[in-house]
Design a protein around this nucleic acid. Structure first.
Length: 283
DNA sequence: GCGACAG
DNA sequence: ATCTTGTCGC
């Protein structure tokens, strides 16, 4: 659990970093209706092991645009220290994501993404500084927050109004603003994978009832409008391709990681020859 | 005061 | 985040 002193420390850091957030388009391609000039879109994600709250796999992928082919992939096991607390996700995940970006810039500078899609929120956050803002400021990359669930902040909740917005969305086929009690638009809800015309009416109805929107918000150096347009153009399925690929690959990496120790472990308690065995099996 | 709460 | 089976349709 997060003790009060730690929490105050976090908030101090957030306040400091927030001063660096840019909520406007800063790149030329962002102002183009077709994103001319955009060639690489990055996605980041962490996957966790079921009962283990310290081991995770951090992944960063870079996709070509607009083809959305994987150009770069980096998966790495990391030791998570901060617990998951809603509103403090950045302090749990961001350090490893920053490392991944730095590794990419050092090893494959030509593959540096021009924008990052982040699993989580940006301005749609209790203090207007979610993980997407955090990562954007620390890497100086344009970032967009894409959450699969609504973080209830500033009066936003999964209430009747929210459900009605989702229903109306399926008629207009577009997006709806996430307006807080303060009157400020913190992000946009969207659900584009609605092309279910091939289903019969019965199934279509149940599918619509269970369909969930995406929650898109500004992270850094991008306008909300551009963020929504870009995420939409990256969606083959509900989750935009960069994040989806990062998610798939980090999960797969963990799955293999989980199997590996089982082959070595039952060998023997002696430690000397274990290193040799591991060397051989790795090669 | 209690509950709700991105991944 | 993670645990899980089948089922339906292209």
């Amino acid at each position: 659990m997060a003790a009060p002193p730690e929490r105050r420390c976090w908030e101090r850091e957030q306040a400091r970093l927030k001063a660096g957030v840019v909520e406007q388009d800063t790149e030329e391609w962002q102002k183009d209706p077709n994103f001319t000039g955009l060639e690489r879109v990055g996605g980041v994600d962490l996957s966790y092991i079921k009962g283990d709250d310290t081991s995770a796999c951090a992944s960063l992928v870079v996709l070509s645009y607009p083809a959305l082919q994987v150009l770069y992939e980096d998966c790495r096991m990391v030791a998570v220290t901060a617990p998951y607390v809603a509103g403090f996700l950045a302090f749990r995940e961001v350090p490893f994501l920053v490392e991944a970006v730095q590794r990419l810039q050092q090893e494959e500078p030509k593959l540096r993404p021009q924008v990052l899609l982040v699993d989580g929120n940006g301005l749609l956050h209790h203090r207007g500084f979610g993980v997407a803002c955090h990562l954007g400021v620390l890497t100086d990359l344009p970032c967009i927050g894409v959450a699969k669930n609504l973080l209830q902040v500033d009066g936003l909740a999964r209430d009747e109004l929210h459900r009605e917005q989702i229903r109306s969305l399926q008629r207009s086929g577009d997006t709806f603003p996430l307006t807080g009690t303060s009157g400020r638009v913190l992000g946009m809800g969207a659900c584009w994978v609605l092309d279910l015309s091939f289903l019969n009416a019965q199934v279509l109805r149940s599918y619509n009832n269970s369909s969930k929107p995406l929650y898109i918000s500004v992270g850094h150096r991008v306008s909300l409008d551009t963020a929504v347009r870009l995420v939409r153009s990256c969606c083959r399925y509900r989750v935009p391709e960069p994040i989806r690929q990062a998610d798939i690959r980090s999960r797969e990496y963990i799955r293999k990681q989980l199997c590996a120790p089982l082959e070595v472990r039952p060998a023997r308690p002696e430690s000397k020859k274990e290193a040799e065995l591991e060397d051989e099996s790795d090669a």
